[in-house]
Design a protein around this nucleic acid. Structure first.
Lengths: 403, 403
DNA sequence: ATTTATTTTCTCGACTGTCGAGAAAAAAGC
DNA sequence: GCTTTTTTCTCGACAGTCGAGAAAATAAAT
């Protein structure tokens, strides 16, 4: 079912286009905006005037330029137009960040997640209090926050801000929208962590200009995450975080901490590798936490040619390879980016991955997918947060229009 | 990267909206169109006038009506506005159909696919000749055909009309666009068969009005097909046919006719079931063709409680269940529709399917997906063809506009 | 037979949007 | 100070949608 269109929709779309160009490039002149967007100069005048009047963008006074002729005046998003809060929930800490509309980090603090205080109710209180604290530290009114972007590992409901399953809270559902309630005017967004990695990588790839079609980001660590970015037919970016880590690999992978048997994570997550390396029965309840040092030791053993550690990493690689082959069967061919702490063992996983990939028709037809290891996962997650939150704010602004 | 919009785009979109409403309902009056589309009466006048002038729609003279007041005049697509050719390629026959712009079947014939004449080159000649014959039989000029919609089992390239892999031609690629060359002005479309089933079912579901989110169609037979339909964020229908049948199930499934090991099809396709039932080694090269009677015999055995036939169907069910669980992990939850010849054994498969599904976290969280068996696969495929081809033609018409 | 009521369709003017061309602005070079 | 060059702004033309009311076409009432 299509939906009707009108001149207002046109304006909205073109305003969004201008705003997103401005956001990407930081600041642009009238003529540069016209070049970037393909819109006529006259149209740019109208749109910039409107955005300026609403306080979304402003002329920057500095016009550094050597050439002759009338100097260009640059437009840029007004940093004080609004603010976004970014919350990264990881297994051990929760990081709260405040950034302005220009994407500049203003404040940040972290809180350890005390292991004993569990349950969503307790966490909710801590969470709300931390947001208040973040505001107080910068003497910022709650109303000036336009988006709160939260990330966690786990499964997020497609529609809103509901965490369906997470390594931290298990099946206890957590709805951030109702948690924050009515007094926040901000848009509440919850995203899977690896989705944000995919978002950040996709944004970077689009920046480069080479026709971007899609990519998959896989995060290796205690758990396994997947983020998928694709461009829809309208050219818009579509990112999602399917439940890759707990997709069925093979029953032999053993008990997963989600309670099922045979998840990819049960073979390729840190605890799975640990279990296999030490020949612990595969139906043993998985370790809650595996110190990196422990994993390093197993890896060292594997690199020295020890049998079981090597076997463990190879099995993990096969689980990943099989999973990726299934991913490629069900989606189009996309380049794969691997990130997370587990990438330091990628030399050990690599062979298993290729082995696991090679088994399927899809790979035989299209060849092995391009696999790239990228570092700084946390930085990418934050970039993804900003990209996603600020685009959402932008579209809210253009949607509001002159209403 | 978004794209700029303009008033012409608005008109195009709204014209398409009117045309699609007209196509869905068959014929509508001015006021009914306004109700359906939400457009203002004045806009309807302009758009219908333009479509009428271009010969796409026409007023039907019959205005049966009992009420008082000025009688409604109905608009309907002009059946002679153009024609579409539908070709269904199956393993044994090729069916050629001609329909008009109103979706009415005008002519149809079938040709047996002689098993000895293999190779894409030979088939290409037969194919082109058959299309010419179809035109001659109805004394129709080639230029009046606006779309040729072809379907086959197998893997279709996302962009155009290239068959990448098929049970019939294997890895021999077949590009229908170049095959038909320049002298056809028609749009050449190639779709996976089960994709069309999904398209037809989705169209029916949208018709019903209950907010349609998506569905998956699975075709059971000698091979296993998947069609996936989802509504994008713009409300448009997005259908695809991922490579489900040859997605990796488990190495134990044995050799598949695609040449890989462990495909779903190798366990759940007819030849896989046959192989398991007769305890043929699983690396045996699969049977080219399994008569239904043969399958019926195995099924009868299974229903009488014979061990190996029962085991074969159960393993097939598990392969399907596992595959569906992976599908649900990587996409959102969607209702499943099962179709194809294999549905007659669904009583035998059913338990295995549930068993295979129950293993994953996704299913534990969201419960078993709704699974419905639907008959008349060939009818659905044809409906899907028409829906897809005529929508494509519609969008070509509105895109051309007054150019 | 004529008038009235009712429903549908068409038409007109207002409004919003984009676009191209040329005017106005603002600096550098002479 | 004048010209050249580049950028930005402005104006009129054109395309599209919308709401209101006019026009059309029929059934019912007088």
């Amino acid at each position: 079912m299509l939906t009707k269109s009108s001149t207002e929709v046109v304006r909205q779309q073109n305003s969004a286009l201008v705003l997103s160009a401005l956001r990407r490039k930081g600041s642009l002149s009238h003529t540069e905006i016209a070049e970037q967007t393909g819109l006529a100069s006259a149209t740019i005048s109208v749109i910039t005037a409107e955005l300026e009047r609403s306080g979304t963008i402003a002329k920057t006074e500095q016009h550094v330029q050597g050439g002759r002729g009338r100097p260009r005046v640059l437009f840029a998003p007004r940093r004080d137009c609004g603010y976004v809060i970014v919350v990264r929930i990881s297994s051990d800490i929760v990081q709260y960040s405040l950034a302005d509309y220009g994407g500049v980090l203003l404040d940040r603090f972290e809180e350890a997640r005390s292991q004993n205080v569990s349950g969503t109710a307790a966490f909710g209180q801590v969470f709300v209090a931390a947001l208040e604290r973040l505001l107080q530290r910068s003497r910022l009114d709650k109303q000036r926050v336009l988006a709160v972007s939260i990330s966690s590992k786990g499964l997020v409901a497609g529609d809103g801000a509901r965490l369906l399953w997470s390594p931290v809270f298990g099946r206890e559902e957590l709805d951030f929208a109702t948690l924050l309630g009515e007094d926040w005017r901000a848009r509440i967004m919850l995203s899977n962590e690896t989705l944000l990695v995919a978002q950040a990588l996709a944004a970077k790839a689009e920046e480069k200009g080479d026709t971007f079609k899609g990519l998959a980001a896989i995060s290796l660590g205690h758990s396994i995450g997947l983020g998928l970015a694709r461009t829809g037919r309208a050219g818009e970016l579509d990112v999602s975080a399917p439940n890759f880590g707990h997709m069925l690999h093979a029953p032999s992978a053993g008990l997963c901490r989600c309670g099922s048997y045979g998840c990819i994570e049960a073979a390729a997550g840190f605890y799975g590798i640990l279990r296999a390396a030490f020949e612990v029965p595969s139906d043993t309840i998985p370790a809650k936490f595996v110190p990196l040092a422990e994993m390093d030791k197993i890896a060292a053993g594997a690199r020295q040619g020890q049998r079981m550690p090597g076997y463990a990493f190879r099995q993990a690689g096969i689980a990943l390879g099989n999973g990726i082959s299934r991913l490629l069967s069900l989606y189009e061919a996309v380049p794969i980016y691997v990130t997370g702490q587990g990438t330091r063992y990628f030399d050990l996983l690599h062979k298993g991955v290729e082995e696991g990939l090679a088994q399927s028709l899809q790979v035989r037809l299209e060849g092995l997918p391009e696999i790239t290891v990228v570092g700084d996962e946390q930085g990418l997650v934050f970039d993804g947060h900003l990209d996603r939150a600020l685009s959402a704010v932008d579209s809210d602004i253009t949607a509001a229009g002159h209403a």
